[in-house]
Amino acid sequence: MPVLKGKELRIVGFLCNWCSYGGADTAGVGRFTQPTDLRIIRVPCSGRIDPLFIIKTLMNGADGVLVSGCHPRDCHYAEGNFYARRRLEVLHRFLPILGFEPGRFEYTWVSASEGQRWQQVVTRFTEQIHKLGPAPKIAGPEASKTLRQMEAAL
C-alpha cells in the first residue's frame, strides 16, 4: 500500500540531520500542517547525498525528490553543503537529458529553527508535483503505457 490512490503522490525527501531534519521536527512541534505525500530519509549531511540516490529514487518510480540541507556557510561539517550544492546543481541540469522532468527534483536550504519555512517548502513542492501529475513509470504494472509512448516517439 505505497500511496493512497488518487490522493497522494510518491515524494521522497533527503534531509541532513543537523538543519533540515531539525527544521522538519520544528515544523512538527509547531503543528504546522503539511501535505502527507513526503517521506523523509535522514542523512548526516547533504554532502552525503550521492546524486545517484536521486536518480535511483526517480527511476524506482518516485514522482518527486526534495533535498534539503543547512544554509550555505552554516554546515555542521563546515563545507558539506557546498559539495552538495555543486553536485545537485549539475544533477538538476542533467535530469532533462536523462528524460526526467526537471520540476520533479529540487534542493533547498532550511535551518533547524525554520519550521514555518519547512512547511512552505513542503507545501509548495507537493503542489508542484501534483501539478506535474504522476511520473511515467518504466517498470511495474503501469510501464506498458510509458513503453508505448517511447516507441511512438521513436
Binding site: 500500500m1 505505497p2 497522494e8 515544523a27 512538527g28 500542517t33 517521506r39
Partner: peptide, 20 residues
C-alpha cells in the same frame, strides 16, 4: 510524531505514511 501525527489530521493518510 513530528513528521506524521503532528502535521496532519487525516487519520487514513497518516496511518499509511506511518506504515511507510
Amino acid at each position: 510524531r513530528e513528521h506524521v501525527s503532528w502535521i496532519g489530521k487525516d487519520r487514513e493518510a497518516n496511518t499509511n505514511k506511518a506504515i511507510d
